[in-house]
């Protein structure tokens, strides 16, 4: 009888020690925008600023994480003016490209196939029909008035990266 009295609490303790503690999680559909690589303008000629590596620049890269396929579209708009710069007396001609580069799923190459470009080539829209991570490479070139050199100083421009629910 005494042995039984000891055994019952011992079993109770064992049961408590083996209790399960669940970790609960919930994955919801969402789009995460990350700036992955800092962009820099190279100055290959006096009248040009460019993010192309061949021009001494660094191509900015924006990463999108897509949790659920076909819920969002990505819209990336490249600069058409400087948000800060020395005083400019002539017009600046902007050109740009945006392409899906590195991707976590090869099937994401469809982003490039089906992309839509508008706003004189400055806005590119990608239908995010595949889940995963994708890195968008952006090139941006600014050319100053014919035969004129950009004034010395620092230049800043803005890329707008958007995720719009469908």
């Amino acid at each position: 009888m005494k042995k039984l009295l000891f055994l019952i609490p011992a079993l109770a303790v064992t049961t408590a020690a083996q209790a399960n503690y669940p970790i609960n999680g919930f994955i919801e559909s969402k789009c995460v925008i990350q700036s992955d690589t800092a962009g820099m303008f190279g100055n290959p000629t006096v009248d040009e600023l460019s993010t192309k590596s061949a021009d001494g620049g660094v191509m900015p890269i924006i990463r999108y994480d897509i949790i659920t396929a076909s819920k969002y579209k990505a819209v990336i708009t490249t600069p058409t003016n400087f948000s800060a710069s020395p005083s400019l007396s002539d017009s600046v001609d902007w050109t740009s490209t945006t392409v899906a580069g590195q991707m976590s799923d090869a099937a994401m190459s469809i982003f490039n196939t089906d992309k839509v470009i508008y706003n004189n080539g400055h806005t590119t829209e990608f239908d995010l029909v595949k889940a995963g991570s994708v890195w968008f490479n952006v090139t941006s070139e600014a050319k100053y008035g014919v035969g004129k050199a950009f004034p010395s100083g620092s230049y800043t421009a803005l890329i707008v990266a958007e995720c719009i629910a469908k």
């Binding site: 789009c31 925008i33 700036s35 800092a38 962009g39 900015p60 924006i62 948000s83 800043t156 421009a157 803005l158 890329i159 707008v160 990266a161 958007e162 995720c163 719009i164 629910a165 469908k166």
Partner: peptide
């Protein structure tokens, strides 16, 4: 080091 404006829209 710069500037990307991010915008996320829910429907």
């Amino acid at each position: 080091p710069s500037i990307v404006a991010s915008r996320i829209c829910s429907k």
